[in-house]
Design a protein around this nucleic acid. Sequence first.
RNA 1: GCCCCCUUCGUCUAGUGGCCUAGGAUAUCAGGUUCUCAUCCUGGAGACAGGGGUUCGACUCCCCUAGGGGGUACCA
Length: 552
Amino acid sequence: MSERVVTRFAPSPTGYLHVGGARTALFNWLWARRNGGTFILRIEDTDQKRNTPTAARQVMTDLQWLGIDWDEGPETGGPHGPYLQSQRTDLYDKYVRQLLDEGKAYHCFETAEELDAMRQEAEAQKTGFVYRRPENPPSEEQAQQARAEGRAIAVRFAVPQDQPIVVNDVVRGQISFNPAELADFIILKSDGFPTYNFACVVDDALMEVTHVIRGQEHLMNTPGQQALWQALFPERPLPQYAHMSVTVSDSGGKLSKRERPKTLRAAIEALQNPDLGKLAAAGGISTDDVAAFLEGKSVPDMPAIDAMAASLGVRLPEINIVDFFKSGYLPETMVNFLALLGWNPGDQREVMSVEELTEAFDLSRLTKSNSLFDRQKLIAFNTEHIRMVPKDVLLDHFKAYLEQVQSPLLAADDEVLAKVLELCEGARTLEQIDQKSRFLYVEDDHIEFDETAVKKVLLKGQALEVLQIVRDRLAQMSEYTEQALEDMLRGLAEERQVGLGKVAQPLRVALCGTTISLPIFDSVNLLGKQRTLTRIDATLKRFGAATKAESK
RNA sequence: GCCCCCUUCGUCUAGUGGCCUAGGAUAUCAGGUUCUCAUCCUGGAGACAGGGGUUCGACUCCCCUAGGGGGUACCA
């Protein structure tokens, strides 16, 4: 493979990087890395209405979290910059001019509304709408005049009609298109910005892109782009196109950003008496916004959606890359899992490191059919990667996670965190590790007791009695080691002719408020004698009184 | 409506005409280990969308039907 490889990821900055985009980025990146080639990041911000100023930065942050770096792009620079399309308009203008002069493009004056009307009419008659090229395209003078009158003026590419356009796709083979069914598409919008189909071709050519790896949703754009490329850059070879299958959601349909708001809306609607005011406050938006959201009229931004969901304790399906970060997935897991969505190494390997993926990746093994995003399998992968990743790397990931969710465990030093990670071997997500360990750093009088845990463990049988004995023996222990603790608890269980669970569970709930925590001996040990006793006393006082009251 | 793509266990997939009584993973079920949650171990069940061809022989090649997906913008 001595051939030079240049790939690119070209997102439009409309929000967070989502799973689909991340996969596209990853495949392009893997292919470039595999071949010692160049990976370019290009921001396609030619739609004035849809861009948000911080989105490009957000996308870059998300890529970086995944470990996807770019050789050329924003903030990195490179020989083909700038890498924001909104800063390249002079280039696009130049090529539009060239096409116009060569008679390969022409002006048109229809407004968006007029075109809409034509389209609707066509639809009413159940026929497809194809823009018909006028017999005599407007002259340069007419265009000048229209411009002077302030009319909307756009430029269309005249798609060559002489022969079928054959796209040679790496994944799907040769696909032939009838040019008569390809409309003369707009390349320059009336606001002066190029359309995607135009800017993309100009940039791919200028940036010397050799491989275009993208989702199947772009397959229908390809004949037009290819024709444009040949009109503009006849001397340059076309890039290799590879159209990947689409990723669909396990809740049915295409994996879409809209799933999160949808899930939240359903959760709110399922409530008897949703407190809209409280929701609005949680989301930092107005009550009217919440009402409009419930009626399906508008959708608040992601942070507001997240905050409202959190206030209700509702879990939203992860869609954006940051969502997976917040749910405690490792970047290694995401990269591995994403890579297997529409690709496989051809042997029976599945859990793979980035290095292995890079080494094995090949365009010839891209899958044709759509794949479903299976969260269950993702969790299984995460379990494997948590186990596989080097200790220091895992520690770094864990600290980043704790920071992200602002866990009380942030107060712990590296030594304790490393110990916690060791004790949580077999955990499925970083979130689980955090959840079962954070009690260590919660104030003794701030323990939240889980209702079912209290009922099922503490208030059952002789639990409180046993807890009292545990407390007394603990207080008397001169040596407070894990081994001593274990001996004591096991001894007690044996004395009372019960399983260790009968002794350990009440203690666990007293210390953590839940039935889920680190192994009990370690929990007691890490918490320290004093705090352990304090928590047991508080529990005995609180629930001991409750049972007495009940028995009266 | 029109155009394009796709179709193997629930899910992701291996399979490029005989290695297929179709392999792996995950999920699921049964059993075991275990102080909780997990992990872990053993075993089980589970698929070539349907119909026609081609061929000595089709999961593999061709056609049709059905189903799924994508596109049909002055979005990308």
